[in-house]
Design a protein around this nucleic acid. Sequence first.
RNA 1: GCUCUGGUAGCUCAGUGGUAGAGCGCUUCCUUGGUAAGGAAGAGGUCGCGGGUUCGAUCCCCGCCCAGAGCUCCA
Length: 640
Amino acid sequence: MNGEPIRVTLPDGRSVALPAGSSAATLAAEIGPGLARAALAASVDGEIVDLNRPLADGAAVRLLTERDPEALGVLRHSAAHVLATAVRELVPGAGIGFGPAIDDGFYYDFDVPEPFTPDRIEAVERLMAEVVRSDHPFERRVVTKEEARELFADDPLKLERLEELGDDEVITVYRDGPFLDLCRGPHLPSTGRLGHFKLLSAAGAYWRGDERRRMLQRIYGTAFFRKKDLRTHLHRLEEAKKRDHRVLGRRLDLFSIQEEVGQGLVLWHPGGGRVRRVIEDFLRDTLVEHGYEIVYTPHVASEELYRLSGHLDVFADDMFPAMDDGGDRFRMKPMNCPHHFMIYRSRTRSYRDLPLRFAELGTCYRYERSGTLHGMLRVRSFTQDDAHIFIREDQIADEYNRLLDLGDRLLGVFGYEYRAALSTRPEKAIGDAAVYDDASDRLAGVLRDRGLDYELDEGGGAFYGPKVDILVTDALGREWQGGTFQLDFLMPERFGLDYVGADNRRHRAVVIHRTLLGSMERFVGGLIEHYGGAFPLWLAPEQVRILPVSEQWTESARELMGRLRAEGLRAELDDRDTLGYRIRAAETMKVPYMGIVGEREAEAGTVSVRMRGAGRKQVAMGRGDFVERLKDEVARRALG
RNA sequence: GCUCUGGUAGCUCAGUGGUAGAGCGCUUCCUUGGUAAGGAAGAGGUCGCGGGUUCGAUCCCCGCCCAGAGCUCCA
């Protein structure tokens, strides 16, 4: 090697001298043979690079092994290249789109004449294994734009991408064996380092994510360094599938969606109805405690109302088509706001009246595009736990504090962890920017003062006002929308929402649109998955199932059921078949408690209590104690 | 809406160019069972809908509807 030796620093502060032109691989070898084997890539001055890139003098270098989280992204992106290598072998002329690492794995988009069927995916997977066995090194090369144009002359997708690169950008290509790709990298040293991978699915995806452009075929996969991690991940996917609210909704007889009724229209069966009723009762009581007024408004409105609100212009496509009787035109309501505004406007309001909080479990109708519908989570008719709060500008901070209190109370009851996100003024905001920013600052102040962990979405607010979103994390670690508190300076203008101030002059009110749970459909759908169908006692559609050991004891069992029901508990009796059969049935239906009554229990006036999922671990207890225990668990809304 | 894959009994699914099967569930009978499926019999289907090809279509072809995966969208 020519030139002066270089020095690089390690994370522990140590400085190492290396010959000029040395790479991170040389460094690893210098430190030890174990590290030389384990090193996969390097972080150089904070940038992740290939192991064989030459190091600059004075660089801060951290060698990445499979223990470093950053290495997983490198692995997965390399896996994507291996996938493309395999696809090119199967379909030589395949166009190559993008192939990034994503949260749980990677994908690659291909322009191929035939879509990928499951057996072709398997074939691709086998070819990938061969690419890994061949252990092709990933070779990086810097090229000029002109060279790149020649290299990718036969791939219009790559050429298009290439033309977008600025003239001062360094263009790199990577080769692994036969496959050459326009790519920024970095990559593993060679394809042989790709550990454990699996192709998961194929689906169409628009080129550049633009629905007006051609559709490519996307293959999804995942990859891990260790077999165990891959297995765990696949197992988690299986678990998520088992918790699918659509599957559980059928099995537990909670709801259905039927072709004859219509797409995206949910039928709540008695079981789902019970869950919903309990939540609604709890919600309504809590709202009244928190100073809300309950209002009711019709499901349809004259089109004029949405002309006034401005929604008709912008969102007509997402509304159900108009009902026209030759004179007036009516629409199913896509939101409750205008109705609530009209209630506010129905009389002169004093500053003393504010805040005024109108809450409604308001059923709305939105004509969502068919491909977006999904079980209970994305539907065309849904009931929002909606409210509109009318306040003075000086009440913003105070009201947001109350909202966050309320959110905290509600979400905690369901066992959700949550965090907040604040969205501030976008470019297209209307009205006085200073008012918008001042409001955002006050919201940020509220979040800070509460010590709440929040994320800032700069410019993510609506054009009419900033908002605070609550994001909840469920039992599988997935994040859901868990409420949104949206400030609105526009609608008060459009609807003339005023109040008379202490100065006896008219002032403009400020509106907060807010939901806590979102919609009953989405919330209950989410809860089904959160609990895996095993609802805590207070929410369970059926709380206790009484099982007489034989017909002889049915009378005694019925007496117990009567006592439970008299206390408002949802108890059923099952005297169908053998005891073992019925225990199995109750377990499958995820009933929290079974009360078994046979000779011993009937004579002693007790009941043998078997808890969901606890198998034969059961206790005999007095019937009064049993009733009290359940009542207490319900009253505490225990999560079980 | 777009791409692909599907649609057969209440559910999960097998199957065939000559109008159809299993398991579970349901009904009835026998069994009176002590902790995750006791036994038997029976009912139940316009094979998503509409066209076409064919002597004959659940099966092949076309269109539509619906579902699933993904994309796009989500006031």
